[in-house]
Computed example of a mutant assay.
Amino acid sequence: MTLPQRPLIDVLNQINAYNTAKPFFRENREKTETWHIADFEVNTAKTKAVLLFSRSDQLAADQAVSEPASKHFSVTAKQGRQGNASSAHLAIRLKPVKPNVYLTVLEEAIGISTKDIESILALIVTKAKGANKTFFQVKDPSGTVRNARYKFAFVGHPSDDFTADLEESTINGIELVDLRARDQVFDEDKYTVEKSKTIKLALRDKDFPIWDALRSVGKRANKEQLDSLRVKFTDAQKSSYTVELDANTLRLVHEDRFVKKERLTGFKTRLNTGCDKIVPEIRDRLFALI
């Protein structure tokens, strides 16, 4: 059942309140990498927000510095559980472009992907729900109080080069993944559960415009309540790829190679690989893009 919408800023404030009171750290299974939200800001007009995500990697190589003219060379070794730091600013326009969809721009950083950010936010939302149950209780259209669940999903605008290249590529297949019966018992004796169903498609004619075909497939997928489609293709350089697209928008899901990017240069502030506070110059440059 669809529950009443809640402004994104309200959810972000709950995340920030929990993270401020009890900082949350997500670790990998080996506990050698850590991700967390290091900082959060909303502009004075309350139209844009920025979150700073940071990562610490204990297994990364130690930092070496040198000055060849003086024959200086030294390595700064990490101590204890220290790790090499990287950070990424995530800027969000708080007015939705359509229900529950917000324009976002992410700074590219080593080891911080949209998938990592989704995971961090999902875990903190779960923690915040336990700390403030009232906020996560909303009335459905019938007046019944229900527990709301909030999920963050990032999709990327395809770059102009990607859309053009895909038209010149050989399409090896299109797949739709059906997760609606996920974890339901499959066999009579209850030994197995269903994880997914895959629907495999092929173009009837190789000369069909690929984006027209994908739009048509996306429309059918939406009717069937299938959220995503995968496209397998070989480009003009004979390199093979598989990309996942959101069926509704045809935007890229968890994809860094082919998303639209903007190169920012000429910073007055000296930028390091990581930071523990939002850098105003980066924040302002990202805000200008949204």
Results as ranks from 00 to 15, higher is better:
Q225R: 10
H157W: 09
N132W: 13
S54V: 08
T32H: 15
F186A: 11
S86V: 04
R146E: 12
I124H: 03
N132V: 04
D116L: 09
S169C: 10
S113Y: 02
R220I: 11
Y191A: 08
Q137G: 05
D10M: 09
A88I: 05
F25N: 09
I199P: 01
E175L: 12
A45E: 13
K200M: 13
F40D: 10
I199Y: 11
T126F: 05
N272I: 01
D160N: 03
L226R: 03
D207I: 08
K195A: 11
A17R: 00
A91C: 09
E244I: 04
W211P: 04
S113F: 00
H254E: 08
I37H: 00
K238H: 05
E27N: 13
F258S: 00
A109C: 06
L103Q: 13
L121M: 14
H72W: 07
E175P: 06
Q63M: 15
K206E: 15
S56G: 07
A202W: 08
E67Y: 15
L106R: 00
Y102T: 12
L121G: 05
V185L: 11
E175K: 14
F136Q: 06
I120V: 15
T34K: 11
A202T: 14
T20E: 11
R146N: 10
D57R: 03
A153P: 04
R283P: 05
V75G: 05
P141M: 09
V97F: 09
L289Y: 02
T20S: 12
I37D: 07
R81H: 06
H89F: 05
W211T: 03
H254F: 01
D246E: 06
N100S: 14
F73G: 07
T163D: 03
N222E: 13
K46H: 03
D187H: 08
I92F: 01
N19L: 14
F135C: 01
L203G: 08
R283G: 02
D165R: 10
M1K: 09
N19F: 15
E224G: 06
I112P: 12
H36M: 05
L8N: 06
L286M: 06
L245A: 06
A61Q: 13
I9D: 01
L8Q: 07
T192D: 07
A247P: 07
E255N: 14
I110T: 10
A45R: 08
A202D: 11
L103N: 10
S228N: 15
D284W: 05
L252F: 13
A128I: 08
L203D: 12
I282L: 04
D160A: 14
L90G: 11
L106T: 01
E281H: 06
I199S: 04
D227Q: 08
R285F: 08
F162R: 00
R149S: 14
N172A: 07
R215M: 12
I9Q: 00
S196N: 07
T76R: 01
N19S: 14
L229E: 05
V279Q: 10
S196H: 04
Q58A: 08
P158I: 14
K268S: 08
S66P: 02
S159A: 15
R270D: 13
E281I: 03
Q79P: 04
E244D: 00
Y102G: 07
T198L: 12
L203V: 11
G83N: 10
A122S: 12
I15C: 09
